[in-house]
Write a protein that binds this DNA or RNA. Structure first.
Lengths: 218, 218
DNA sequence: GCAAATTAATGATTTATTCAAG
DNA sequence: CTTGAATAAATCATTAATTTGC
């Protein structure tokens, strides 16, 4: 009951503390240490090298000297085909593709132009958010969906088939904007680690067939 | 503290339920759903079988070991050592490690327990955010209690050395909470994609040596 | 003393906001 | 202005710590 929320942070400022007293465990909660054979070593930190090894005695605050100007530093510039496919997927109900889906979508879209997985990820994030705020805004001003940028139709009559290999359930097209709806685990990070996760899970194939889709404007 | 957090409603604003009333989000597969297979419809989403292998009771039948369920189901439970190192890094100024840093931190922390890169990423995100809100909250008439956090005696003489291999400029301890300060490209996705990231950039080594902090003089 | 219920903490996701490139 | 990219905020979800009842 009488739980005082004792903040033990003392997060002052990291002026160089002579002895970085570690061992600051979170006082309140858990500290069970279930790990077998825990060597139990926490130690002081010598961050001598955390300063930039630049000999120059200054950290320039040169405006955006940080930006990557070297090749590949430009941002993704989607082609019409890519946008079209992405919008189809979006309209098809895809809201937050998981890692594998992202990978394969990107692989497909790479046929039409340079693209990476993160572009796909961001596109869905942004598109979802901006569709929502458009809707919200238009509901206020009652301007209606006059600002509907017609999605440029795919200029070919190719039937694109994206086969998504997934092991989570697909979320039915729940809605375009479902504020907070825990769905399923999906996080691009899973690429990052080894793929040797989830040992036994039969993989399902989701095949999204994308037909040219006459421009109906949206 | 009868502070309950049960109100999670109030999200029924957008009731735009389209015609397709497949309200079920995560339900079981509704039987072998036979798709209408209308070839001339717009993007047909053919999810042939989304049956998740949930049919059989997987884990309640564990013969013995209740500990350590297999990866994929449980969330990361950091050990003291991991927390300690992470806090050291945080206090050392690390705020948003980039992909390579995350990878190597995770590799180091993996010595003390199971961990993935995303755990590191999330930890920094959460820690930063929660430090900030604690600070903000504690600024409200809070007697900054000097809670003498006595450093728990650590009993080991291991010297942990984390060598971070980075090729972006290290951000020197700029600030704890710098709201929106575009710093550098850092996003875990970079693992994910090709390894063809920035080929020409001299690599810096950041070495974090973690000394064991002997409790009693030695 | 142990185990179920309660509670606090925090890991993991999603959404909102902001910055900057074109 | 549009929109990709990135971060911060909100919050869901799970776990461990604490309380409570036996």
């Amino acid at each position: 009951m009488g739980n005082m929320k004792v903040h033990q942070l003392s997060r002052g400022f990291w002026e160089h503390e002579p002895s970085l007293s570690l061992g600051c465990k979170r006082l309140r909660p858990l500290a069970p240490n279930l790990q077998p054979s825990s060597p139990d070593s926490v130690s002081s930190l010598d961050l001598k090298s955390f300063i930039r090894p630049e000999s120059g005695p200054r950290k320039p605050d040169s405006p955006q000297s940080q930006v990557e100007t070297h090749p590949g530093g430009t941002r993704w510039n989607p082609t019409q085909e890519q946008i079209g496919i992405l919008e189809m997927l979006y309209r098809g109900g895809m809201r937050t593709p998981n890692a594998q889906q992202i990978e394969q979508i990107a692989a497909q879209l790479a046929k039409y132009g340079k693209i990476e997985g993160k572009n796909v990820f961001y596109w869905f994030q942004n598109h979802k958010a901006r569709e929502r705020q458009k809707m919200k805004r238009s509901s206020l001003g009652l301007t209606h969906c006059a600002t509907a940028r017609n999605s440029a139709p795919i200029s070919t009559t190719t039937t694109t088939t994206i086969t998504l290999d997934t092991r989570v359930e697909i979320m039915e097209r729940s809605d375009e904007d479902s504020p907070y709806k825990r769905k399923c685990k999906s996080w691009p990070f899973e690429f990052l680690e080894e793929e040797s996760r989830s040992p036994c899970k039969e993989e399902e194939n989701i095949t999204l067939e994308l037909f040219p889709l006459h421009p109906e404007g949206r």
